Each structure stands twice: as C-alpha cells, then as structure tokens.
Amino acid sequence: MSEAETPYADLSPETILCALESVGYQPSGGMLALNSYENRVYQIGMEDSPPLVAKFYRPERWSDASIQEEHDFTLALAADEIPVVPPLQDPAGNTLHHYQGYRFALFPRRGGRWPELENPDNLAWIGRFIARIHLLGAARPFEHRPRIDPDQMGRACAQYLLDEGAIPLELESSYRRITEALQQHIDAAFSATRDCQTIRLHGDCHPGNILWTDQGPHFVDMDDCRSGPAIQDLWMLLSGDRQEMALQLSYIREGYETFRELDSREVALIEPLRTLRMIHYAAWLARRWRDPAFPQAFPWFHTHQYWQSHLGELEQQLRLLDEPPLPLY
C-alpha cells in the first residue's frame, strides 16, 4: 500500500510520545487510543499534570491554514466564554505542531456524558449556546475552511461510489436513479434558500460531540467546522417522527432565539442536509477503505446487506423530501 493509503503506518507509540516531548511536555508513557477514525486521537498521561488529548491530523486532508483557522475559531469561542475545548497554546501562541511529517495539536481532557435530549430544558440550553457560537460565527467568514456544497456532498460523492465500483453491480442502476432524484430535490431546496445567511459553524453538531456535566453542555471536535446555514448545527439533534422532531426543534429554537433569530426558511433544508450526510458518509467509508482501521471498524461496509439497507434509507429520504418542512411551533 502507498503512504497515502496507510497515512498512520509510522505513527508508533514512541513517535507520539516524542512528538509531545518536542513541544516541551513530559508524557508518563500511559496512552489510550480514543474513538476517532479520520484522525488519530490519544489520551496521554503526563508526569506532573493531568492527562492531555493529542490529535494527529490525517495527512493531506486539511491544509495548515485550514487547521489553523479551526483553532483560531475555537479559541475565539472560548475567549467569549462559550463552552468549547480549545487547543493548547505553547509559549509562542502556536497551536499546530509538526513532528516527523505529522501535524498535531494538544487539548485539555474534558469529560462528560451523553446529553439527555428528551429534556426540553437541556434542548433550550444547547440552543442558547449554539446561537452564541453562530453570533461569533457570523462576524466574519472562513477563508480556508470548506462550505456546505450540495454538489460536492451529494452528486460528486454518489458519482465516486459508482466510478469506484463500491456498489454491487445489480444495485447500481437503482442507486443512480435514487440519487439523481434526490439531488433534484436537494438542488431545489438550496436554490430556494440561497438568500439565507452563510456563517461559520461547528459543522458536526451531533449528540456525541456535546458532552454534559453538572455545569451543562460543552462542545467538542471542531474538526469539521465549515460555512453553511445555521440549521446545520441544529438538525442532528432531532430524532423521531415529524411531530417529535418539530417539538424538539421548538425547544431548541426557544433557547436559540434568546440570542439570535433563526431564519425559518432554513427548516426546509433539514431533510436535504440529512440526505447529503447519508450519501457523503458512504463515500467517506469508500474513500478510507484502504486505511487498515476502516475494515476493522466497519466490517459491514461493502456487504450486499449494507447497500440494500442504504438504498432503502435513500428511498425513505425521497419520500420525506416530498413532504412539507417541519412546522414551527
């Protein structure tokens, strides 16, 4: 395999510990791999201080400038007393470090539990903090981070899967038909909301990236921060049937609009964004398949059963895109 296919082949425990030593830390040798596939993330024990979290960025995924922009955004949020986990700065103010061809950043360890999203007060609390993220995010644009692009996340990803032969031959025509129909709906929805504001976002604000303590929520993993509509950071917190999601959105919106008005037109983007995420996720797995970590973690991918299930989910999305947007209470 090429280096691009096995980007972490040389990232040994010794290399990780030496990387931390290169920026002035004294690791004890204790190391725990955390749940991450795109990057490699480790909890590292320290000799005379609490453990740190070290993130080693996937080579060639982001430019240095785009990673630095993520760090600067997170630091600005933290300075505004918004509960995020910013990277640690060295005495010169640097947050992005290099060692033997790897780029890495260090973070304080922050624990927490899964948020109880069935609690309306918790949803409103989260909504208030997301609005504050968006207030700062709307102050100026990203220059190096990507934006939510329905063509790249939808059409290009579907074509990649077809071109690479990832889909079983007997299902290709069905996949092509469904994704082309979905893309028409998605394009129409984004065209109808093209006047909505594009702002800097968390970008991947699902419940696993919101940790809860007795002090409330804090937001982690800004690795996918990008530009897009505000609703991107809200829809992944919704689950259940239409009525349940509409009620959840009402609680989030109540908290959100304490600080920032939510453009009601963006609600029409919820199912298009969900559909794009589903297509993009399948393409992401296919693109990373030669990384040895992926077959181990996702053994069901590339099975006939997976693709049949995926097609069924896309068919369901096609029906949902024909329905009116969620009502706003």
Score class of each variant (00 low, 15 high):
314 L>S: 04
274 R>Q: 13
197 Q>R: 15
31 M>W: 04
211 L>C: 11
5 E>D: 15
253 R>K: 13
10 D>M: 11
241 D>K: 06
70 E>H: 01
154 G>T: 04
269 L>K: 03
321 L>Y: 06
299 P>L: 02
168 P>H: 02
123 L>P: 05
148 I>G: 08
290 R>D: 13
274 R>E: 14
327 P>V: 01
214 D>K: 12
98 H>F: 13
24 G>A: 10
236 M>P: 08
158 A>I: 05
63 S>K: 09
190 F>K: 00
5 E>R: 13
212 W>Q: 08
263 D>H: 05
65 A>C: 11
122 N>Q: 14
106 L>N: 07
317 Q>Y: 06
207 P>G: 12
210 I>W: 01
203 G>H: 00
228 G>P: 04
81 E>Q: 12
321 L>A: 08
218 H>S: 07
99 Y>H: 14
113 R>L: 13
190 F>S: 10
312 G>K: 05
51 P>G: 07
270 I>G: 06
125 W>T: 12
108 P>R: 10
308 Q>D: 09
300 W>P: 05
69 E>A: 04
107 F>N: 03
286 A>S: 03
84 V>Q: 00
169 L>Q: 13
101 G>F: 07
144 H>W: 12
99 Y>E: 12
156 A>V: 09
116 E>Y: 01
303 T>E: 09
148 I>R: 04
154 G>L: 01
100 Q>C: 11
168 P>I: 00
208 G>E: 15
298 F>G: 01
179 T>M: 00
32 L>E: 14
32 L>F: 08
221 D>M: 03
43 Q>P: 01
6 T>Y: 09
60 E>P: 01
233 D>K: 06
216 G>D: 09
42 Y>S: 10
241 D>P: 07
66 S>K: 00
46 M>H: 04
46 M>C: 11
217 P>N: 13
256 Y>S: 14
257 E>Q: 15
17 L>T: 07
265 R>F: 10
166 A>P: 02
308 Q>P: 00
18 C>A: 15
7 P>A: 02
114 W>C: 12
248 Q>V: 04
29 G>D: 05
260 R>G: 12
178 I>E: 00
224 D>I: 00
